[in-house]
Amino acid sequence: MREMIEKSKLLIFDLDGTLYEDTDHFDYYCRLLQQRVDVSIQGEFYYAYEEMKQGKHPVAIGKVYDLKEDASLTVDPLTLQVTAAHLWDGTQMNEETLKREYSGELTYDFERFIAIGDGWWLPYVTAMHYGLSQQDTWDCYNATKVYMVSDEFSLTKTPGLKESLERLKKEKHLVLMTNSDKEDVLRLLRELELQDVFHEIFPSSQKPVKTKEILMAITSKYKVKPDEAVSIGDNFINEIAPALLMRLNAVYIQPNGYDLQHDNLYIVPTLGQAF
């Protein structure tokens, strides 16, 4: 992997879960949402979320949530074909419904098919199942972002990361591509002391819907071939699968490992280990 990074000319980083790995803010987000459901089901609400985090629920990071069917879908990330579907209670969807609803390539749209690529989406999906509105989730998400830049919250800096990125910046183009909006990105980078590290920032990227489009724009702008670029992130659906499909290299940050072999893919437990 070190050789691959050293030979590259362009490194494209995710932000949340990549440049920092704290997860307390996901729990905070869920607690805010929990307070908006009827008190009689608040315990059930948070219990479902905890089950998801522990891998004991059909909904999990790496799955896709179908809002219409209230189902958790297993999707091949490179072919985008649905291979299995389970209802909220764990029951497997019947074959007839599976074939009718998911006959072709799945398209993520943030409306019906929600790609659960990282910890932000677990509280969101829980909220959708228990009947909260999109406005509820947006309000609580914004409140969580405010909390993340308050004195009550602090980010854990990855030891040596700043120095490694500053060294790489002298030889390569460093780009940040994130779904967070510009204001949040700049605040988080200041907190991490990484505000001057990147040559360019692409906020509000709408990954995974627009990942390929933006990756194409970035590689074209910096005039690099696919094998000279590396996509680095903790979200396989958002950052890794689209990069591999475009023949870019990819570094997937996943502490629990991942069962996929690919010539252009490296899996590491932390970003610090990647450098």
Rank of each mutant, 00 (worst) to 15 (best):
R2A: 11
K7T: 12
K7R: 11
S8H: 06
K9C: 07
K9H: 11
L10Q: 01
L10S: 02
D14P: 09
D14K: 06
D14G: 09
L15H: 01
D16E: 13
T18H: 03
T18D: 07
L19S: 00
Y20G: 04
Y20M: 05
E21Y: 03
T23C: 04
T23D: 14
H25M: 09
D27K: 03
Y28F: 15
Y29L: 14
Q35E: 15
G43F: 05
Y49Q: 06
E50C: 09
E50W: 00
Q54Y: 13
P58V: 04
P58A: 03
P58N: 06
I61M: 00
I61N: 02
K63G: 05
Y65E: 09
Y65L: 06
D66V: 01
E69M: 10
D70F: 10
A71C: 10
V75R: 04
D76R: 00
V82S: 01
L87F: 04
T91G: 08
T91Q: 11
N94Q: 05
T97A: 11
K99L: 10
K99E: 09
Y102N: 07
Y102P: 04
E105W: 08
L106G: 06
Y108C: 09
F110D: 15
F110K: 14
F110P: 05
E111A: 03
I114V: 07
I116H: 06
I116V: 15
G119V: 12
W121T: 04
V125F: 06
A127K: 09
M128R: 15
H129F: 14
S133H: 12
Q134C: 05
Q135S: 15
D136L: 05
W138I: 14
C140I: 08
K145I: 11
M148S: 12
D151L: 04
D151E: 15
E152G: 03
F153K: 13
L155Q: 13
L155N: 12
K157I: 14
P159Y: 00
G160N: 04
G160P: 11
S164T: 10
S164M: 11
S164P: 02
E166Y: 11
K170E: 15
K172N: 08
H173Y: 13
L174G: 00
M177T: 06
V185A: 00
R190E: 15
V209K: 14
L215W: 07
L215Y: 15
A217N: 12
Y222S: 07
F236Q: 07
F236S: 01
L244W: 02
L244S: 10
M246S: 14
R247C: 06
N249L: 02
V251T: 00
P255Q: 02
G257R: 01
Q261Y: 07
D263T: 13
I267E: 02
L271F: 05
G272W: 03
G272R: 02
Q273V: 11
A274S: 10
